[in-house]
């Protein structure tokens, strides 16, 4: 059986001649429907590059990306995407920013009013719908960005270190939001991170990337029950996963 997402011998080299940077690959990755896969690797190993190629937002140097056996050629539009820096625009309110996603897709805003309220409520932002992004804390902004990225109910979600700039407590909170959404709607998620604990807590599978040019070191299936709350995080099994991954990166000298 074919996998939902197939990344085959994918490679990216930026620039030419003296300025050449071999950023990623070649690497082969297969992902099934409804998986939560973390891409874990040190800074600069090509994780963002990989994700942009999967999203069709960046051309590869060689290799291919397929969704349900269909080759990705241009930007994929049936996805939800989040970056380290949020994509909220300062001239729209939180609600207006969520509507931006729908407007750009040509959807009828009237049909979505209830969904907008519900998704805001799910991240405790319902009282901030009419506020502007610069009136919100960093964590609230990222939660608003989460609503913006998910309002059209994408079946594929690409997250590029969306928690990268947040403090530890806020990260913990938003991780729970991600997990809740994933458990309810079962989208296919690719989650880029450099936090080992975060990867183990959220994913059904973690893919370890070597330092640049990023290649796959190994894949680790995380066999822990959901929801992965504090109790699971304290379990010996959880800690063993974290330790074994730490050892891999220790070997590369990145930690």
């Amino acid at each position: 059986m074919k996998n939902f997402i197939e990344v085959t011998e994918l490679k990216k080299v930026f620039g030419k001649g003296k300025d050449e940077v071999h950023a990623f690959g070649p690497a082969t990755i297969n992902i099934n429907t409804g998986e939560f896969v973390s891409i874990l690797g040190p800074s600069g190993c090509g994780k963002s590059t990989l994700m942009l190629m999967v999203a069709g937002l960046l051309d590869s140097t060689s290799g291919k990306v397929e969704f349900e056996s269909k080759l990705v050629k241009g930007p994929k539009t049936d996805i939800g995407i989040m970056f380290q820096d949020n994509t909220l625009v300062p001239w729209r309110t939180v609600k207006g920013n969520i509507e931006l996603q729908l407007e750009l897709r040509g959807f009828n805003l009237k049909d979505y009013q209830e969904q907008i309220y519900n998704i805001l409520k799910s991240v405790n932002l319902e009282d901030f719908a009419e506020r502007f992004p610069n009136e919100l804390s960093g964590g609230m902004q990222q939660r608003a960005a989460f609503c913006q990225a998910m309002i059209h109910d994408p079946k594929i979600i690409l997250l590029d270190e969306p928690l990268g700039k947040l403090d530890a407590m806020t990260r913990e909170k938003i991780r729970a939001d991600f997990q809740k959404l994933w458990m309810v709607k079962k989208p296919t998620v690719i989650f880029v991170t450099h936090s080992i604990e975060e990867a183990v807590q959220l994913s059904s599978r973690v893919i370890l990337i070597t330092p640049r040019p990023g290649k796959i070191d190994r894949e680790i299936k995380i066999d822990l029950p959901y929801p992965r709350d504090l109790k699971v995080k304290r379990s010996t099994k959880f800690i063993e996963y974290v330790n074994s991954i730490q050892e891999v990166f220790h070997k590369y000298g990145v930690i």
Partner: peptide, 14 residues
Amino acid sequence: LSNELTLFYQSTGA
């Protein structure tokens, strides 16, 4: 325009 916003609107197909 920020890189992220450019990628964001491209992913909407607008």
